[in-house]
Design a protein around this nucleic acid. Sequence first.
DNA 1: CGTTTAATTGAGGAAAGTCAAGTGAAGTGG
DNA 2: CCACTTCACTTGACTTTCCTCAATTAAACG
Lengths: 213, 213
Amino acid sequence: MPQGLSPDELPKLEALICTARSVQRGEALYRSGDRFDNIYAVRSGSMKTVMAHRDGREQVTGLRLAGEALGLDGMSDDVHACSAVALEDSTVCIVPYSALKSLCREINSMQERLHKLLGEQIVREAGQMMVLGSLSADERVAAFLLDVSQRNAQRGYSSAEFNLRMTREDMGSYLGMTLETVSRTLSRFQKRGLIDTQGKHIRIVDLEGLQRV
Amino acid sequence: MPQGLSPDELPKLEALICTARSVQRGEALYRSGDRFDNIYAVRSGSMKTVMAHRDGREQVTGLRLAGEALGLDGMSDDVHACSAVALEDSTVCIVPYSALKSLCREINSMQERLHKLLGEQIVREAGQMMVLGSLSADERVAAFLLDVSQRNAQRGYSSAEFNLRMTREDMGSYLGMTLETVSRTLSRFQKRGLIDTQGKHIRIVDLEGLQRV
DNA sequence: CGTTTAATTGAGGAAAGTCAAGTGAAGTGG
DNA sequence: CCACTTCACTTGACTTTCCTCAATTAAACG
């Protein structure tokens, strides 16, 4: 998260991060409607963000792996628009927003970094709109696996093999399809020799094949 | 756009806005891949933002009415992630990003305003992900009409009656369905007495009915 | 005013959803 | 630590929704 800061600036960011917090699997770090005070960075584990329609239907709107930022959905009106729920026992760094704002006014590169973060989320979400709006079920699942794989690689983990702590239902919700269709699609990918799945453990066997789906 | 600025700050914003630019119907204000230099505000007319998949498929990712901000998709990596195309002859205000950044460091409320703008887009897009991921065709169209209606009201125009300059194809793309399904859905809404359409002109007859869809 | 582009409507087909049953994994308490 | 309960996942059969293709009508633009 703190990329591109000079040596003398890093301590200031560190001073900002008051506390770390641990969140149990299934527990909410914040809920839709909660006051927005902090931005978070996932330190270990992973989380999902969930948004609710007024009739109660819920949709997973995001997945956050270790190292990724969380909580930006509260900036628009000082109240969180979605809930953040831990997919496994996780820890997050807490960054008080008001302090971060001040720091962004003082330090150029800090402002730059926050802007990039916001911009990335905007582009990521637009990309997900594309996935939901124009891809078939197969394409959606493939795109999702490739996205997670790539994000794993970015953080120095294996891009070929990883644990996805989401349930099939979470994946389905995120990808706009039912859990059965997710399951069937994964099975089909396995038969075609594209991946190898055992429940939540996923290994990408044929990367290029998956990209061609 | 410049809400919440004090009287002495407004001139500074105005100084920032170097030029206005007019964009002809169908013309692109910027294209995906263009360098990101400016943020824009639609002054008159309306625009769509479009994102392309690598295989060429395009999806409409946003609609911007007069008064709304545009161009934020370039902040993440200094290159625009989508294209902005005029739906009718339009004009936009140009706000140079680098100057805006400086101003945000000087003026508290300016920073606040930009952050809100970014936060709003993040929440708006998450909302659209919900629409695409969990609503039926009928519900999508209804949600879209209500959204446009509400945004019209916000800007002081009629919430009950408006011109939608998008084609059925644009709407379909934005809502993740085919133009035929959009057309059929609108016809059905009309038969049910919810709306009254003549091509691009739309009148909402039964607001509550539309909300119940 | 004619030509192009957009919209409507119908018929048939395909993709994904629903319902249901069975299997496997994981967490809990004795 | 094992048995038990619960939850997650898989797979099949059937249904529904939406898409595709096609023909026609209406609107927009030069």
